[in-house]
Design a protein around this nucleic acid. Sequence first.
DNA 1: TCACTACATTTGTCCTACAAATAGGTATTA
DNA 2: TAATACCTATTTGTAGGACAAATGTAGTGA
Lengths: 235, 235
Amino acid sequence: MKELHTTTLADQAEEKIIGYIKENHLVPGDALPNEMQFSEMMGISRNVVREAMSRLRMLGLIESRTKRGIIVTEPPLLNGFKKVLDPQLLSIETIKDMMGMRIALEVGITDFIFTNITDNDIKELYEIVARQKALGINSLSAEDEIKFHLKIYQIAGNQFILKFQELMHPIFSFSEQNHENYFKPISQRLKKENKIVTHADILEFIKKGDREGYRKAISMHLQPYLEFLYNYQHK
Amino acid sequence: MKELHTTTLADQAEEKIIGYIKENHLVPGDALPNEMQFSEMMGISRNVVREAMSRLRMLGLIESRTKRGIIVTEPPLLNGFKKVLDPQLLSIETIKDMMGMRIALEVGITDFIFTNITDNDIKELYEIVARQKALGINSLSAEDEIKFHLKIYQIAGNQFILKFQELMHPIFSFSEQNHENYFKPISQRLKKENKIVTHADILEFIKKGDREGYRKAISMHLQPYLEFLYNYQHK
DNA sequence: TCACTACATTTGTCCTACAAATAGGTATTA
DNA sequence: TAATACCTATTTGTAGGACAAATGTAGTGA
């Protein structure tokens, strides 16, 4: 774990401020020393302290207001994660890993879904599926595709997972478009082999209360991603 | 989604630099304009640009070296996530959500495990379990508890999930300690009802190649967390 | 051609200054 | 006395200048 590039004073200041919060057991709402005090405590310029503070402010660990000073806040967990999710910047390997995570999550929330689901949820799912069917099997709009899965995640009732999934989604749609000539043959083959699992199929398992069936169905539904992550070779 | 506090110039600069990377389709290795150029482009002082750069550098989106300038890098996805994972700062609701995620992930990677596992992996798991047994059922050391699950995640072969799990783990052990008087009764009750699923039990399902059995077993093994997240009421 | 040197550029750090916001105290008034 | 209006001191946000350190680059000499 050694540093490739020398750590700057801003890096050190950041660590010390985080350390200060932990050591003094500060909790959201508590005040931090102001910039000048940190500057003097560490023997560095205020500019550098500000760089560190700016980082923590971006992560949502602190908020600062004129005169009032700086206060600790409960950080939104995924502030930083959101900013680095640019498909242009991520390697294929990383995107594969994210697809794996998506599959694991969507299969893994099965029990939560069956625990939490209400009749009204099922009704809403039927509406989404009906709208898709009305548009015809071939014009499966991306919008309704998203809506169905989004609803599934909402039913699971875990805000963290929901947010996480929403953030990852653009990566997948980008990848599907970018590797269209890879995904299309997979879909066509599955169709020929009659292995396509539609949202309507999945919904039936939910209605019947068949967890194992649902798990297998959602897994098959995500099969294209699975094949991508196991088989795709970068040029 | 409206802003509670006025966005600072540093916030805007950060957005613009990220925007610059996206619009110009920069990829890791490409160079960015230097600080003065950004400063002039945006009509703001170099200090502010540096604050924004400092944030991006922390996230791992860029690296900068004297004279060479600033280059785009492939960001480690979880740099920011890691820094906000302080159990002292997170609400019970957030921690519950994280536990839910942990359960979903560990159940959800079942298929990956059974796809990837080798005889050698099984052997290693047996060694971990044997060491636990040798120490006696009551002195189930936290270390071996961690090792078993860590090995499971390694077998799944997804670096992102592995890293994610490693980062979340301290939150769980903190929570177990912090709410010890909540977790202990659950364990005792499960023991009385003979519903304790040990690592040895789990391992048997792996050996037999019984996915469904494994899924149920790992789920039962994580039952205390599940009960916590469903039942725990904050004072 | 190659090694060495000098130079120019760019980041990292420090300093000073001031505007804007505002908490907290003070004076004023009903 | 109590409520209100005003003042002042403090603190963040922003600007701009300065210089050290690092290092690519060009130029020099063998």
